[in-house]
Amino acid sequence: MGERLYLGLRGYGLIVAMWVRATLAYRTSFALMVLGSFVSTFLNFVAIMIMFTHTDVLGGFTVAEVALLYGTSATSLGLADLLLGSLDRLGARVRDGTMDALLVRPVPVFAQVTADRFALRRLGRISQGVLVLIWALTQVDVDWTWWKLVLLPVTVLSGLGIYGAIYTCGAAFQFWANDASEVQNAFTYGGDTLLQYPPTIFAKDLVWGATFIIPLAFVNWLPIGRILGREDRLGLPGWVDFASPAVALIACTIAGFAWRAGLRGYRSTGS
């Protein structure tokens, strides 16, 4: 187990380093791509800002509070997208048969698929998330205590874990539905759009589903809600607001099993 982890991380690092070198060979093009990624994802925040030119609160949240939700979710998703975003090409690899080539190399397949065509331009998505987050922190009305200062980075990292688990489950699903790479967009980009807004504006059933079926609420709604001093919609016990790291760990474990099941299925059917 430990050795496989080492092999995987080492292989991931090697492949990523090569792609980064290849990307940086064309600096102007790379800079433009980062800028493009930055602007196109930032437009979502522009849309929110336009909404707030017409109103002062949305679902009872101020613009700074919404920005805090936006910044945390966008940063977590951006990190997951940078590290694992290439997983959406898995179905295509199975279809065109290049999956087999990965299975005869001495590096775990997951590391090879995630590192393949590593797109450093996705730093654009992360940096707009971070900028909005920083802006939100300067604007938002919160009494900062030590536990809130710890909870914030823990939340962002847990969000990375939860989004990462969704990417991985989506990839596992592509092992048997090769053309279905778009399904995971509903939960990654769709989840991000959901979490950019306060939970108060959504139907209770939707919030319930985003808590207990796909644990998106743990990416920011619950922990950030606690920082902002908001009641959660479902009246859950208070400790739930601090459960994000545990939830992320469970989600990643489940995703790990899903991935293994998908790969095992591929290796027994060859398609």
Binding site: R4, L7, L14, I15, M18, R21, A22, D96, G97, T98, D100, A101, L103, V104, R105, P106, V107, P108, D116, R117
Partner: peptide, 30 residues
């Protein structure tokens, strides 16, 4: 499988095991 990969070489005639977008030299270094 991964241990065996160190000791065998595989060439699929129809599809490449190389990195499609990279020059051969980079593939070999990797």
């Amino acid at each position: 499988r991964t241990a065996l990969a160190q000791r065998i070489g595989v060439v699929f005639g129809q599809r490449t095991t190389l990195w499609w977008d990279l020059p051969l030299r980079d593939s070999y270094q990797l």
